[in-house]
Nucleic acid binder design. Structure first.
Length: 595
RNA sequence: GGGGGUGUAGCUCAAUUGGUUAGAGCGCCAGCCUGUCACGCUGGAGGUUGCGAGGUCGAGUCUCGUCACUCUCGCCA
């Protein structure tokens, strides 16, 4: 007989009745009836009830066993009496009558209950993550994550991709986020950086002739956390394809994501190919480059209808170059006064001066602003929004950027408040045709996304077009308002790369200095290539229906990038610091604390 | 760095307008109970109301400061 078990706690059925079984696991609960004790024994696979008779020599001690201790039982598998069958347990038709027992690992009193699904504060959960991970919902999330990643590997391999590891210790590069640095012992004063993404390595692999690369890749960025963004580190399904177009990348990702989402969720998934929405259209209609398409509301431009009208607040905005955005919401004219007041308050809370609205009720218009508008204008608005009796149109007037942002927030809020968002669907879309450049706050031309992206018109665009008019083969994939990934067809032409950087104000030497490997590689016959890197954590988060990314990560850090279980970041020995040729210059506040 | 929320027993929460000795459920400890499965019953222990000031006859409740967690803006090409 095996040292610890012949069966797991999830596998015994009627078929094993009369066999002697050995099971090991955690004490999920103890029900002491005085003359008889029931123990639910739990392991990774399930729960099995163990019965302990008073005749057993170990009976006396059992009453005092604490939950979450690990024990081993040997006993006979018996059928439960019909009245005692538990239909909620897969093992509910049998129980084990204990004949021998062994305590394997005693537990202290647990700081929070493991067997019960009770909310518990985050800090405690992170400090005792090993206990939290025993709890059913988190345990299941980690299992789900494992299955998803395993399936991703199968699907990517089936699509002809090879998984290749790229370095974790690499060089710092000036792109994007803040780097995590690792000091070099051998080279005083020099530092490795943890990769923000394997971006340059995967492009180098393309120049090395590997046709289709992928990796479940750890990425490190020293930026602040959000509910859907873990601090420090996260994983991407990183991929790159040689001799490939944007459509090739879309096709592979549609296959893989559609399968993953179909297989790991009961929700309704969009058919492939997924909808493609140009960036500009997304901004106009949804005010966002990651629209939640479950929300049917869209924004429209009503600026011209308000130009020169008697409603000075709006007319003035339009006259000074601003816009009036409108959202038509069907069937909500009957909402209470409070609803509309709350919406106005909400709009103000996100920076709007106000929120205009028109309500069509019983053939009449009810609105604080209707009296300023001509019948003709009202009819034109009605036509624009496609509204009728019982419907409402909301209006936001501001400068383009502000109106867009506020409109997007109002759209989201209306979607939530009016219950328009179907929780049982996944709505995907590709956002395409991102601009290559944008103006930064100082009015300077800057890359708007990835400087390695290919301009859609190639060298011709770079030479001739207004930089702000150049579109890139740069795309995002969005699901239910969550950005799963950005990707791009890369610029593999070294000369075009120099020119693209020049437009953003960087000298040729900057490209050579900052991206020496890529730029050198591109000079030895680079294949055209394209890629993307969907976020694994976010995909699991959507499929697990969890609002917070910590719920799908086994050992997450808190919002301040601390690992409360391991105590990271932590102090190190002075010798270690000396070996690395470092001296600390701590802020005064921290110095005081460590004294 | 800015803004919002939260902080009361080991855990989850309550405590009317500022008013008696800060309560409940779960957990813990002790006892009873032979068919429960969130077992049940009886009893008990457990509190610097995050911390520090202020004001009040009187503060969990009001004011100020501070700390922690969280959400968010900045940031994440």
């Amino acid at each position: 007989m095996h040292r610890y078990r012949t069966h797991t706690c999830g596998e015994l059925r009627k078929e094993q009745i009369d066999q002697t079984a050995k099971v090991s696991g955690w004490i999920n609960s103890v029900r002491d009836h005085g003359g008889i004790i029931f123990i639910d024994l739990r392991d990774h696979y399930g729960l099995t009830q163990v019965v302990i008779d008073p005749a057993q020599p170990f009976y006396k001690g059992v009453e005092h066993w604490r939950v979450e201790s690990t024990v081993c039982f040997i006993g006979k598998v018996v059928a439960r009496i019909p009245d005692a069958v538990n239909p909620r347990l897969p093992t509910g038709e049998i129980e084990i009558v204990a004949e021998e027992m062994e305590m394997l690992g005693e537990s202290l009193v647990v700081p929070f209950q493991v067997a019960k699904d009770e909310e518990c504060n985050e800090m405690l959960r992170l400090e005792y993550r090993f206990l939290d991970l025993r709890r059913e919902s988190l345990h299941n999330n980690i299992i789900l994550r494992s299955r998803i990643i395993s399936r991703m590997r199968e699907l990517m391999t089936a699509e002809g991709f090879m998984e290749i590891q790229t370095p974790i210790l690499t060089s710092s590069s000036p792109e994007g986020a803040r780097d995590y640095l690792v000091p070099s012992r051998v080279h005083p004063g020099k530092f490795y950086a943890l990769p923000q993404a394997p971006q340059q390595f995967k492009q180098l692999l393309m120049t090395s002739g590997f046709d289709r690369y992928f990796q479940i890749a750890p990425c490190f960025r020293d930026e602040d956390a959000r509910a859907d963004r873990s601090p420090g580190e996260f994983y991407q399904l990183d991929m790159e394809m040689a001799f490939a177009t944007q459509d090739d990348v879309f096709e592979v990702n549609e296959h893989v994501l559609h399968k993953i989402f179909t297989e790991f969720s009961d929700k309704q998934i969009d058919d492939i190919p997924f909808k493609r929405i140009p960036f500009k259209e997304a901004m106009d209609k949804y005010g966002s480059d990651k629209p939640d398409l479950r929300n049917p509301l869209i924004m429209q431009d009503a600026s011209e209808l308000f130009r020169g009208c008697d409603f000075k607040a709006f007319a003035g905005v339009v006259a000074s170059g601003g816009v009036v955005k409108t959202i038509a919401a069907k069937g909500c004219a009957g909402e209470s006064r409070k609803f509309f007041d709350d919406m106005i308050k909400f709009a103000q809370s996100v920076g709007s001066k106000g929120l205009g609205y028109l309500r069509w009720i019983d053939g009449e218009i009810q609105s604080p602003i209707a009296k300023f508008l001509s019948e003709e204008t009202l009819n034109q608005l009605k036509e624009l929004g496609g509204v009728g009796d019982g419907d409402v149109m909301f209006f936001v007037a501001d400068k383009m950027k502000e109106a867009t942002e506020i409109g997007a927030a109002v759209r989201d809020e209306l979607g939530k408040r009016l219950g328009l968002i179907d929780p049982d669907v996944f709505k995907f879309c590709w956002i395409v045709d991102f601009p290559m450049y944008e103006l930064d706050d100082d009015g300077k031309v800057e890359f708007s996304h990835n400087p390695f992206s290919m301009p859609q018109g190639g060298m011709k665009d770079i030479e001739e077009k207004d930089p702000l008019e150049i579109l890139a083969y740069q795309y995002d994939i969005v699901c239910n308002g969550t950005e799963l990934s950005s990707g791009a067809v890369r610029n593999h032409n070294p000369e075009m790369m120099y020119r693209a950087f020049e437009i953003a104000g960087y000298d040729r030497s900057v490209v050579d200095e900052k991206f020496p490997a890529l730029q050198r590689a591109f000079k030895y016959g680079a294949p055209p290539h394209a890629g993307i890197a969907p976020g694994v954590d976010r995909i699991v988060m959507l499929l697990a229906d969890e609002p917070n990314i910590r719920e799908v990560i086994a050992f997450p850090m808190n919002q301040k990038a601390q690992d409360l279980l391991m105590g990271a970041p932590g102090n190190v020995d002075h010798h270690q610091i000396r070996d690395l040729h470092l001296k600390l210059h701590l802020p005064k506040k921290v110095e005081k604390e460590s004294e």
